[in-house]
């Protein structure tokens, strides 16, 4: 027998402001999913993510890989007849997954490595990012030719940059409570 899902007063009011968007207005027309470039790789499609938020089944979304497949392209938002900011609601799920340590995705690891670099250097240091990511993904051989070509063309710097206002980044990270390594 399948479980009966119900929207409760609590889940409805949570959905009404989820991620600053009015997820409660979603009527499952699926326009978002039909135009989503990542839907084919999501185990829970964007419209179904909205439904689960309405039902208060957020825990399941936090451990999903679907939220990390979202590219943030904003196609769904610009087409939704109810103007629901779907990517913002998905961002909210990502934030909760990250801060509760539930995020199980290479993308979450990527964001941590990326931001760790920004905290240290202020600017993106691509080569450092690529190397740390290769270690995290245990993927040492892909794109090495491409990387070498970029270096030859003077497109990748070999040394990180640093800000003149020293300590500015560290302070910003501390004040905004974002704990990256």
């Amino acid at each position: 027998m399948s479980t009966v899902h119900k929207i409760t007063a609590a889940s409805a009011s949570a959905a009404a402001s989820f991620g600053g968007s009015r997820v409660n207005l979603c009527y499952q027309c699926m326009t978002c999913t039909l135009g989503c470039p990542a839907a084919g790789r999501m185990e829970i499609h964007p419209h179904a993510i909205m439904r689960k938020i309405q039902l208060g089944e957020v825990q399941e979304l936090l451990v999903s890989s679907a939220i990390w497949k979202c590219l943030g392209c904003e196609t769904c938002y610009s087409r939704c007849p109810n103007e629901i900011n779907i990517p913002s609601a998905i961002d909210e799920l990502k934030h909760a997954a990250m801060s509760s340590g539930k995020a199980k995705s290479i993308s979450a690891a990527f964001h941590n490595i990326f931001l760790g670099g920004i905290k240290k250097n202020g600017l993106l240091f691509e080569l450092g990012l690529m190397l740390r990511l290769k270690i995290a993904m245990k993927d040492f051989f892909s794109d090495t030719f491409l990387g070498a070509l970029m270096i030859m063309k003077g497109k990748l710097s070999l040394r990180p940059h640093s800000l003149r206002e020293s300590g500015a980044m560290k302070k910003i990270f501390e004040k905004s409570g974002a704990g990256t390594n």
Partner: peptide
């Protein structure tokens, strides 16, 4: 002068304040 990375999708995916 002395600009920093905008944080891109990584900051956006991590925390609104950041």
């Amino acid at each position: 002068s002395d600009w920093n990375c905008c944080g891109a999708s990584s900051a956006h995916s991590t925390s609104r304040s950041l």
